[in-house]
Each structure stands twice: as structure tokens, then as C-alpha cells.
Design a binder for these strands. Structure first.
Lengths: 338, 338
DNA sequence: CTGTTAGCGCATTCAC
DNA sequence: GTGAATGCGCTAACAG
């Protein structure tokens, strides 16, 4: 099939004017008379003209799209963030290219190159659990492509982030359990290279300290927080000498794994063990009617991050800022079903 | 910041050869000697060359990307499909542009135009609930852009689809409830313009017929199947003269809405009312340990659809096929917690 | 095997 | 206000 789509030349020829005038008119330049502008617009509609964004992009040296790198799309938190990103980008006329690292550093590096080649105007990223160095991200910076972290971030000079107040979330979750009367609270934590897990752990520790509960290192179990890890951690917890009466899980997936395991062992949740997980809607709402969760505002995060990125893209002057926006998680307590 | 990225001309100049040779080498053409190819590759790496995909795209008249239109990314079913799409596209070197219709026809039309302007090589779409005509989709076809339905589809001559066997799902769900001893089974259905809801309803009806249960029209409640609709439907069900002992919900969100409402009314699930919903992991796994669900293979659907689309894009000859791939849903019964 | 030439479609500078 | 000319960076005939 031939590519016979109309170009600005076609409409110029039909009107006996130059294509440059057509181009100007289509871009609503003030330097075209109202009359010709109207003629051009009419003709364009008549012959079904459509701007060739590819050509425009080449000429403008920008793709009018932003790249998004997330560990995994099907994680509800990330898909919520993406929904927010898409919403904001759509309003500003940007396309969004979504990529998944699948928690693999190699893939993340690969994706970064692809996005570079595609001349995206900016990148939003939540790093993989494997990501321990960020040279590939600095390559973006070197090429003048602004990027922004959301959720899982590093502190890099000159790079902004939109994050959740993880410390507060960890603190609130733990204190909530303490106020419920729990004494021995285990914590499922993630790779400590990621600030989010470090901060949630800090919150946990400080809440214990505030309430004069002695910290027992064996109660903190580190893993990659996949569902199986949650189950494994629950198993490990059961094998401890001390009797654990609550768990604070640093994400929802591991909480689910733990819950399933405990249920299989006929351990009553939340009667015997209370659980709080970082999570967001709708899983957390229904997983356990009585399950308290630390809700992460994913959609808002996506919108905010995109807004900041686009502003940066437009307004290249302020590239070297270092703004960290902290969104507040909320503790959501469900009606107990006991 | 200037755009000083290296081009093929830069590396041609440095090596005193022509840029076309460089282009060929970079595309691994067999018509370049091994030696020069190596020299070029080395030089390219040395000066940090990166193909300008924008220029390449313009020249090739294709964007090397496929557009995806879904009602809403944050719905787990769709994010699973997208994960599958992304996976397959990534392997084939395609980019994926994700767009959400948010169940609005106007937005869907708008998106279609954008994708057209972006010269995507193909489109995968699951239509919105509002979509009653598909002229905008035919525009794709007219412009030689192949598209493919997944899940929510229409039957259009020459257009392929990848769908779930909804009839079977509806039948299995209903029969399952009947075999559990339920006599009065309500059904939450969606807009009948969508085949998927029609087919699920047909399955429901046929299962009733097979087991000699008289169909009561008032037991089928039509809505847009949002969470609130589920709650409203549950309320309506409770107000009926007949006593309903089971619900078959045509999607998971409405099932959740119904469950929440019933719980608030202290109605025991699944003891008093049994519920089966079309759904997929992980919500369905945990929402009610005893809840049976009709599992939809989202990831596989995404992979399959993308595979078919890409094949179509490559192999333009067979554009006018009309292949419908039907994936089988599985009924997943959880251990009862009664 | 390599060079020459000629665009892809658009936006912009410079004339007038 | 409009036209002419130029090039973004790459690829693909066509020669040799």
C-alpha cells in the first residue's frame, strides 16, 4: 500500500500558495492573514490532511513524548502512577512511552538507550531493585534530557523526585500496631539500596523507640518483597523463638504472600497476627476487610511528577534544581470483622 | 543547551568515508566489508554516537511503535494485558504508546487521531463502554494502519480479535453456582453493545436452561459495572421479592462493590450469598478466600494480540484476514473458609 | 564493496 | 503577509 497521505505541499498546490505559508497557518502563526488561514484550514479538512508528526519531530529535534520506566506495569501502585502520568501528559499534548524494567538493571539500561535514541523530551523513572549504580541515568542528563524520580529514588545532585513520606508511613504503621496492643512486631523490608525501604525501616525503629519497645534485629526480614518472599518471611517468623503478634510489611505484595501463608497455617488474621502493609487501592481495600494499610497516592504522584517534568522541559533554565516533593501517605483502617 | 549529538556524518568525516557507508554499517548491511564495519562501529562507540530514531522514522515512513488504547490502565486486567503487550513488543523492537479512553468515546476518537498523526505502525484496542460506532477505527484502516481488538471487540469484516471465551466463562460460572446448590442466581451485566457482556449473559442463560431453572428477567441487572454500580445492584437485589442466594458478576470491580455492600449489611459471604466474578489475579485471589472467579489470561492475551499485530504489520499481504483467537478462561475455586 | 544523489515532510530564516 | 531556499539525520536507489 502506497503512502498517499496529504502533505502541506498538497494543500499549498491546491491553493496556489507556498507550503511555508501553509505550515505557518497550521501552526497558527500570527503572520498569516485571517483569510488565507481560513482557506488553508478548510482545504486541510477537505482533503483530510494530517500533520506528519514524524517530520515535525525531526525538524523540531524533539519527540513530544516522555519516557516512563517502572519496574512492572501490572503492579497496581505503578499502574495508578501511570494513569496519573498519562492524564497530565495528555492534557499537555505529550505522548507517553511506558517501559518496564522488570526489576532488572540490564533492562533498565537498555531502555534508557532506547529512550535516548527516541529523543524523548524527558524521563520519569522508578528504579528497579537491582539498580545500584545510575550511570545510565546520568547519560540522560549529559544529553540534556531532564529526568525525575518517583517513588523509588536516589539522591542525585540536581535531580528532583516525587516521593511518598516513607518515614512517616513506617512510623504510623508501626505506632498503629503498638497502640493496638502489639508488642512484638516484625518488619518485612526490602533492599537497603532503595531509600524507600530504608526510610520505612527508620520509621519502624523510631516508633518502637518512642514507645520504649526494645528493637530485636531478628524481627526485620530483608527480601525483594515478592509474594513468595512474603510467604517465606512469614514462615521464618513462625520459626522464631519469640512470638510475633504483628507484621508491618513494606509493600502489599509481600503482605499478601504472608497472609496467604499464615492462613494456610490456620493462623487467624488479624486476631492472632495483625498486619499493616504499604499499599494502595483497590487490593488493600478488600484483601482483608480488617487490614489496615498505608495508602500511597499513586495517581497524584504521577500527575505531580509529570507536571514537574514538563515544566522542566519547557523551561530549560531551571534544569539544575533539586526539588523533592513529598506526598503524604494515609493510614487507612478498615472496620474490624472480628 | 545545544543539540550537539553526533550524526553519521560526524563519524563519516572522521573516517574519511561517506555517510551512506556508515549508515549501511550501522544497519549491519552485508554490503560493507568487515573491516570498515568494525572501524565504523569503533568510532561510533568512541564518539558516543546514537542513532536519531526521529530521522530514521521519517525516512522509513514508520514510527516503529504501536498504539494501545485501553479504557483504564489501572484496572488490573488491562495492566496485565499491557504487560504482555510490552513484553512482546520489546522483543520485536517496537515501542508501545499507551492511551486511556477512560470509557469515553470522544477521548477514544481523539486518541485515534493522535496515533494516526504519530504514524504508529499498528493499533491494539479494547473499546470503551460508550463506543457504539467505530468510524474512527475505520479511519485507521483507511490509512493502512492495521488494528486488532482485544477483549472488548466488535465484529468488523477483515478485523481480527483476541478474546476470552466469554460464553464459556458465563456458563461455567453459573453452572458452578448451580452445582453448589444455588437456585436463585442474579447476574450483574454490562452494556449490551459490548459482545463480552452479551456473551457472558448468554452463558448464564444457557446454564440455567440446562439445569431447568426458570429464568427471571428481574435477576439480571444492567449497569456500567463500576464499583458503585455493584453496590447499587446489590441493594436492588436485596429489595427483590425473591431471595437471591448467588450472584454472577460480569466483572471484578462490580463484584467488589457488591461484596462491600453486602458485608456492610452483615450478609455473610459466601455462606448466605455466593459470588462469582470475572476477574484476574491478584485481586480475585485475595478478595475473598472462598470466592470463586473466572480467571482471564490478560498477559497471554497481550502477548498474542501483539504477536498477531506485528505479523500483520510486517506482512502487509494478509491484512484482510479475519482471525479471532479465543483464549479460554479458567474457573478458579478457592478453598472455602467456612 | 563504496560514493553520489536525492528525498522523507516540516519549520524557519531571509528576502520582498 | 507571503515566497524561496535550506536542512533536520537518515536511507535507498543507482552507479561504479
Amino acid at each position: 500500500m502506497k503512502n498517499n497521505r496529504a502533505t502541506i505541499h498538497d494543500i499549498a498546490k491546491a491553493l496556489n500558495i507556498d507550503s511555508s505559508t501553509v505550515s505557518r497557518a497550521l501552526n497558527n502563526s500570527p503572520r498569516v492573514s485571517k483569510k488565507t488561514k481560513q482557506r488553508i484550514l478548510d482545504k486541510a479538512k477537505e482533503i483530510g490532511y494530517q500533520r506528519n508528526v514524524l517530520a515535525s519531530n525531526l525538524r523540531m529535534q524533539k519527540s513530544n513524548s516522555i519516557g516512563v520506566i517502572v519496574p512492572r506495569i501490572s503492579r497496581h501502585f505503578f499502574s495508578s502512577v501511570i494513569a496519573g502520568i498519562e492524564e497530565q501528559a495528555y492534557e499537555s499534548g505529550y505522548n507517553v512511552i511506558i517501559c518496564q524494567s522488570l526489576e532488572q538493571l540490564a533492562r533498565e539500561q537498555n531502555i534508557t538507550e532506547t529512550l535516548l535514541s527516541n529523543r524523548v523530551d524527558g524521563v520519569l523513572i522508578s528504579v528497579s531493585m537491582e539498580t545500584e549504580n545510575y550511570e545510565h541515568l546520568l547519560r540522560l542528563q549529559k544529553n540534556g534530557i531532564p529526568f525525575l524520580f518517583f517513588d523509588r529514588h536516589y539522591e542525585i545532585e540536581g535531580i528532583s523526585s516525587v516521593i511518598i513520606d516513607d518515614y512517616k508511613g513506617g512510623f504510623d504503621a508501626t505506632e498503629h500496631l503498638i497502640l493496638k496492643g502489639c508488642k512484638t512486631i516484625a518488619h518485612l523490608s526490602g533492599p537497603q539500596v532503595l531509600k524507600i525501604y530504608k526510610n520505612r525501616l527508620r520509621g519502624y525503629l523510631d516508633a518502637l523507640k518512642k514507645h520504649n519497645i526494645k528493637f530485636k534485629p531478628e524481627l526485620v526480614i530483608y527480601s525483594r518483597l515478592m509474594e513468595q518472599d512474603g510467604a517465606d518471611s512469614a514462615k521464618k517468623i513462625l520459626s522464631l523463638d519469640v512470638e510475633v503478634d504483628a507484621i508491618f510489611a513494606a509493600n502489599d505484595i509481600s503482605a499478601i504472600g504472608a497472609i496467604k501463608y499464615l492462613k494456610k497455617k490456620s493462623i487467624n488474621i488479624p486476631k492472632d497476627v495483625k498486619i499493616v502493609g504499604f499499599s494502595n487501592e483497590p487490593i488493600s481495600q478488600v484483601i482483608e476487610p480488617s487490614l489496615t494499610t498505608i495508602n500511597q497516592p499513586g495517581f497524584e504522584m504521577g500527575k505531580k511528577a509529570t507536571e514537574m517534568l514538563i515544566e522542566k522541559t519547557m523551561n530549560k533554565t531551571s534544569v539544575l534544581d533539586n526539588e523533592t516533593v513529598v506526598l503524604r501517605p494515609t493510614l487507612i483502617e478498615r472496620a474490624s470483622s472480628e
